[in-house]
Design a protein around this nucleic acid. Structure first.
Length: 442
RNA sequence: GUGGGCAUAGCUCAGUUGGUUAGAGCGCCGGAUUGUGGUUCCGGAGGUCGGGGGUUCAAGUCCCCUUGUCCACCCCA
């Protein structure tokens, strides 16, 4: 037969991506930062399977997420779904294990999720979420803490200009209840959500003609959504609008406590806003809602969203398991950081590069590298004795900070050359002082 | 899922009303420089013009399908 082999075109599925070291290093750093912040607030790590019985996942996030869920039948005929977020599996997890864990329980969870929707910038079919949640308490303390975690998280990642927009589902429900619009809640909120883009005129006419509200109802809803000002001023203006409904008042006092406490905790006013028009989020939210936008790149969407969901676990257990938490969109945030020039283009996994000059000195090189590693300094040894210039070029391209250069004369005299690749300067250093000198330069 | 724009070398892009062997810059490899790289000079490799089909004497250029990507809607991290 033909000697030409038919090659398979190397490619990835739409919305699925490969990650080269240059992308993976900042990605891991971001995740480590998030884990550190979560732990500092007392959240513990957990993990769950990426596949679940479809019945566990279906109908929990709303019709839209059901449509986007990857779903198939496995070899045993089981109806299987790939998780589209980490919150729904967590509710199942909590219902299953809360007996041994006890309440309240705080966890964080980092892992990929899948949604079969159309791709866009910062929007993929496989992406990492980095969640933290507290379950087993309805205390507003946990709501406030969620806002504080988001604030510290973005600070730790390196952002100064961002806004956490907060609302409460109960406020909206209260308003609609007092207007006798509870039935149309979903469609009213969907239209309302377009306020920013479409403007009040378009929203008004769609509420009237599309959803069928009366003039009075339209103006009441618009008046509510268009309120602006400090949280305190907003809450004062909102109170009379929701006074007629108990839920509304509960949401009102929850938000009042939240903003008061967040301010007392030192969150700057410009980073935390009450936004009555935020209504979105998955179907399971029942209380406070959070969305986080970057002031310098609002178009990319919310990079960290969440809220309170007091009924989610009731689908799996009779025990009351209210929860609150949020999800950091790692991939979306990285796309934003890339665009904002916050990511250094370098892919050196460790600080020190060691060129190999003489093949028959392999044992000496390995021993020297091992000494450095034992002292806590990461070292990469080049695998073959090429021309030194070429090896240094390799090191430079990877972004190594330092090179430790040694050949026969150095090995015999117990020294080596320590070269700062950034400054392009080298000094001769006694082998015993090497780790210390490296520490000074890093 | 719906609608629109893109798709040419590793990267960023040129490519005239369809018309001979498809170009540039950067990068890469080799040499000048047999143990010290980012400059300079010389030389070199690398392209099924995303894939498939069609129209034509002739297609990178026109048409259809398909895949990917970007944008808008929808929704969301």
């Amino acid at each position: 037969m033909s000697s030409k082999k038919q090659l398979i075109q190397p490619r990835t599925l739409k919305g699925f991506r490969d990650f080269l070291p240059a992308a993976m290093i900042p990605r891991e750093r971001l995740i480590d930062t998030a884990k550190g912040v979560y732990r500092s607030f007392g959240f513990s790590p957990i993990d769950t399977p990426s596949l679940e019985y479809t019945e566990v996942l279906l109908g929990k996030g709303g019709a839209e997420t059901d449509k986007q869920m990857y779903r198939f039948t496995d070899h045993g005929g089981r109806d299987v779904g790939m998780r589209f977020d980490l919150t729904v599996p967590f509710a199942r997890f909590a219902a299953q294990h809360i007996g041994t864990l006890g309440t309240p329980f705080k966890r964080y969870h980092v892992g990929p999720v899948w949604r079969g929707e159309n791709t866009q910038r910062g929007r993929y079919r496989e992406f990492i979420q980095c969640d933290f949640d507290t379950i087993g308490t309805t205390s507003t303390t946990s709501d406030v803490e969620a806002a504080l975690v988001i604030h510290e998280l973005f600070r730790a990642i390196g952002f100064e200009r961002f806004t956490i927009r907060i609302n409460d589902r109960r406020l909206l429900t209260g308003l609609l209840e007092s207007l006798d619009l509870l039935e149309q809640q979903t469609s009213v909120l969907r239209v309302l959500d377009k306020l920013d883009k479409a403007g009040p005129g378009a929203v008004a006419s769609e509420l009237k003609d599309g959803v069928g509200l009366s003039e009075a109802q339209v103006s009441a809803v618009l008046e509510f959504a268009q309120l602006e000002g400090s949280p305190a001023a907003l809450l004062e203006a909102i109170e009379p609008l929701v006074r007629g409904a108990e839920v509304g008042l509960a949401g009102h006092s929850g938000l009042a406590t939240l903003f008061e406490a967040a301010t007392a905790a030192g969150v700057p006013a410009e980073r935390i806003k009450l936004d009555p028009s935020i209504a979105r989020g998955l179907d399971y939210y029942t209380g406070a809602i959070f969305e986080t936008f970057l002031d310098d790149l609002p178009g990319i969407g919310s990079c960290c969203s969440g809220g309170r969901y007091d009924d989610l676990a009731t689908l799996y257990t009779k025990q009351d398991l209210p929860g609150v938490g949020a999800s950091l969109g790692v991939d979306r945030l990285l796309a934003a950081m890339e665009e904002l020039g916050m990511i250094e283009a370098q892919s050196a996994p460790c600080p020190v590069f060691m060129p190999m000059l003489e093949k028959d000195r392999l044992g000496d090189y390995l021993a020297l590298a091992r000494e450095l590693r034992a002292a806590g300094v990461g070292v990469e040894l080049y695998p073959e004795p090429r021309k030194l210039g070429a090896q240094l070029k390799y090191a430079d391209r990877r972004g190594f900070a330092l090179a430790v250069i040694a050949g026969s004369s150095e090995f015999e005299s117990g020294t080596c050359q320590l070269k700062d690749l950034r400054a392009k300067e080298g000094v001769e250093v006694a082998r015993g002082d090497l780790a210390a000198r490296i520490g000074e330069l890093l």
